[in-house]
């Protein structure tokens, strides 16, 4: 699993990347009440807005950690947004992206680096 400084995670299997927000981000947001997942077929560039996550107190954009085409969105989140709080780094995933530039992954942090980054906040 790789991480961004904006608290997204990405897990790659073959050319398919599963994307979500980190446990730290879910904790900071508080109770998640709504998730707007991207349309399947949408093409995103790394760093572009991919999804919106809303808690009672804030609405935040989730940025695409990698470029590619959205091939699946987590439909369960529309009925159970609380999954993002309960299982942020597994069942609370947002979208699956077919990678168009796997090289982008190299610049992302691994877990140790991300934990160290959190220590600086």
């Amino acid at each position: 699993m790789k991480f961004t400084k904006d608290h997204e995670w990405v897990e790659v299997a073959g050319d398919l990347a599963t994307v979500g927000i980190t446990a730290y981000a879910a904790e900071q947001l508080g109770d998640v009440v709504f998730v707007e997942t991207p349309d399947v077929g949408k093409t995103v560039k790394q760093g572009e807005a991919l999804a919106v996550v809303e808690s009672v107190k804030a609405a935040s954009d989730v940025y695409a950690p990698v470029s590619g085409e959205v091939v699946e969105a987590n439909g369960e989140l529309s009925d159970s947004p609380e999954t993002v709080n309960a299982l942020p780094e597994t069942g609370g995933w947002f979208a699956k992206i077919k990678l168009s530039n796997p090289g982008e992954l190299d610049a992302l942090m691994d877990r140790d680096a991300y934990e160290a980054f959190l220590g600086t906040l």
Binding site: V33, F34, E54, S55, V56, K57, A58, A59, D61
Partner: peptide, 13 residues
């Protein structure tokens, strides 16, 4: 409720 749609939270969005 659903106040995250509103200006005081979303500001320019």
């Amino acid at each position: 409720t659903l106040s995250t749609r509103e200006q005081h939270i979303r500001r320019d969005k």
